[in-house]
Design a protein around this nucleic acid. Structure first.
Lengths: 158, 158
DNA sequence: AAAAATATGTCAACATGGCTGACATAAATA
DNA sequence: TATTTATGTCAGCCATGTTGACATATTTTT
């Protein structure tokens, strides 16, 4: 079997991340095209769907973009009826975001092929591989983001 | 311990990919800024460095962008002395691409923090985790890309 | 030798989705 | 009441993707 030096091994891992991510995000693109939406819309729909009632500020913090960039895609999603805003009950300055029925359907059509892909991939690793994969993916995060991401992704685990 | 339904588990994995990749590509950005280069330049420098003498057509096939998009960043990299073109010896229509000494230094400064990050993350998984992680990342690829990616990433394994 | 195909380059126009800066409004807080 | 906060909006800029059309040099096919 080939022996590989550590630098090469790491370079290969870096390229696996590049190519893996490239294909991972490829499924939704065709679907989005039919709506004349882009990846920016996808991200908003995804995180609003995962965090119903999220405030604009919280969404900006997840996406790490400016409010002006968000405003463009958010306006389109609202105008076309995929997202609604509701004034916050406790703090009436807030605009809490929710998916409409149409938004939830769009999200579902986007996430379905991604789930299928990830499900297959995790299964390909065999028993125990999923935990190892998760540990490594989590360890890729900047330390200052780990707590936040942990909260975000485990939001509705039972 | 929390029991988690399969859909939620997969959604969490999808978000781990999103956040993990986001942080994974964060290191080089500051470095690139100092050169007034962007991620597109990074990709070109990376794959030219990994595949010395690569042709323009091969590079386009890896990057999946149009030649007009590539032309812009490639021109800048050539003008500023990070990449050189040499006419193909067998086929003189080809322009084979190589990094200059400066290009190799730039690549090294970009890849070093990525290697450090990935190295730490793989180590965090413990023994055997790296193989599991690789298997899963590879299984994320579109089937039609697997052979190509396998060749690309194992290019100089011994 | 001529014709066709290939590898590459270039011009022009346009779209998406980032960015900064400035300013406005309503509501909460000090 | 004054200030801060959450949000929205206008205007313009930049990076990097796209399509379409066309040019050149070289190789391959006829």
């Amino acid at each position: 079997m080939p022996q590989t030096d550590p630098e090469t091994r790491l370079t290969e891992a870096i390229e696996l991340l590049f190519f893996g991510y490239r294909d991972f995000i490829s499924d939704p693109d065709a679907i989005l095209g039919a709506y004349e939406f882009g990846r920016a819309h996808h991200r908003v729909v995804h995180f609003v769907g995962r965090n119903p009632g999220i405030t604009v500020a919280e969404l900006l913090d997840i996406l790490r973009i400016t409010k002006q960039s968000l405003a463009r895609v958010l306006r389109q999603l609202i105008e076309r009826g995929f997202v609604v805003q509701k004034t916050g009950e406790k703090d009436r300055r807030q605009r809490r975001l929710y998916l409409t029925k149409e938004g939830a359907e769009l999200l579902n059509s986007l996430v379905a092929p991604q789930r299928a892909r990830v499900s297959k991939a995790l299964a390909a690793g065999g028993a125990g591989a999923e935990d190892a994969w998760r540990t490594i993916m989590f360890a890729l995060l900047n330390e200052e983001n780990r707590t936040e991401v942990e909260h975000l992704i485990t939001k509705d685990s039972k």
